[in-house]
Design a protein around this nucleic acid. Structure first.
Length: 116
DNA sequence: GATCTGACCACCG
DNA sequence: CCGGTGGCCAGAT
């Protein structure tokens, strides 16, 4: 199980209406500084993937933010999907992280990474 | 193998 | 709040 697959496993485990930051995903993989690599992994996903990539967002202070680069269409799609799950954006295209942050059970994560 | 790039973030100052 | 820096992994050249 390589790094990318672990990222996908974690992302698949995020419930609808909840989100994680790139850095949080990296921490769950025991690579606290690998947030950038998490972004790379999601970038490498095929368009028809069953991985809910839209539930991984960037972080700006205590706010969540869509931070895709060079993919205008995907930015719109991510926002639409999140809004469809009940996450509403403010005028600055952000939303407060606190009510939407997923708090995973460490044992569940360990199990996920172990099995896959 | 060296080098560069990219959906990032924590840590200073 | 803003900017600079270092660190991570994978893919392309």
């Amino acid at each position: 199980m390589n790094f990318n697959e672990q990222v996908y496993e974690i992302t698949r485990a995020i419930p609808p209406g909840k989100v994680l930051n790139y850095g949080t995903v990296a921490r769950l993989l025991s690579n606290p500084r690998a947030s950038r690599a998490v972004g790379y992994a999601l970038n490498a996903l095929p368009s028809g993937s069953d991985v809910p990539w839209h539930r991984v967002v960037g972080k700006a202070g205590s706010y969540g933010r869509i931070s895709l680069r060079g993919r205008g269409d995907s930015v719109a799609e991510q926002r639409i999907r999140l809004e469809a799950e009940g996450i509403l954006f403010d005028e600055e295209g952000q939303f407060p992280l606190k009510p939407y942050l997923w708090q995973p059970d460490p044992a569940e994560i360990a199990s996920l990474l172990d099995q896959g």
